[in-house]
């Protein structure tokens, strides 16, 4: 990251090679449009360069930091455009799974990404559909509780409860799985 902060293009290329797939996939899930997702990815990497000197792994992994930047910027963009992303694109729904063993990504990174995906999918699978729906609308579509309440024509209190329960269950499930893994 020091090298990136100093503006070395090789550092930027390396960061891209390692993490462009999860960043792009997440950006696409949020924006619902390939062109916007590619634009967002570029903005994310440029912001990461500008803030590289502030990154510290004590506050989380590099990929989590990048994804957090992606989320913040996507929410800003969604709100700025005052529109919501389209439903998941066809290619997302057809499970276009790319082999992470392809070029440019190390086995370590592959293992971490796979492990985390398994962890979170298992946790999400355990959520009742209404709770999962609220969680996805909030996190991936950037809707506030009030907006979700209007969209689903459901009382705000119910949405709050569903969101609270969904996150608590996710948290418990993740903690439990992490404990079992150790």
């Amino acid at each position: 990251m020091q090298s990136l902060a100093e503006g070395h293009p090789e550092a930027m290329d390396l960061l891209y090679d390692r993490y462009h797939r999860p960043v792009f996939s997440f950006a696409l899930r949020m924006m619902g449009d390939r062109d916007q997702a590619e634009e967002l990815l570029q903005e994310v990497y440029l912001r990461a360069w500008r803030r590289a000197s502030r990154f510290t792994d004590a506050r989380g992994s590099l990929i989590s930091w990048l994804l957090s930047i992606t989320h913040n910027m996507a929410i800003d963009e969604i709100r700025k455009q005052q529109r919501r992303p389209q439903k998941q694109q066809a290619e997302d729904q057809t499970e276009l799974m790319i082999s992470l063993r392809a070029d440019g990504i190390s086995m370590d990174t592959h293992a971490i990404l796979t492990e985390r995906r398994e962890l979170v999918r298992k946790a999400m699978d355990q959520l009742p559909q209404p709770q999962r729906e609220v969680l996805e609308l909030a996190y991936f579509n950037g809707l506030t509780q009030r907006e979700i309440s209007e969209l689903l024509d459901t009382p705000l209190g119910t949405i709050k409860t569903r969101m609270r329960l969904a996150l608590r269950k996710m948290q418990e499930s993740v903690e439990l799985q992490s404990l079992e893994a150790t």
Binding site: S25, F26, E91, R116
Partner: peptide, 25 residues
Amino acid sequence: DTAVQLLPFAVNQIEPDAALKLRLH
């Protein structure tokens, strides 16, 4: 946050356009 930070990993992995790396560079 520990749970929320995992949410982005739930999405299917999709490869962007190959030219994106060059454009970013």
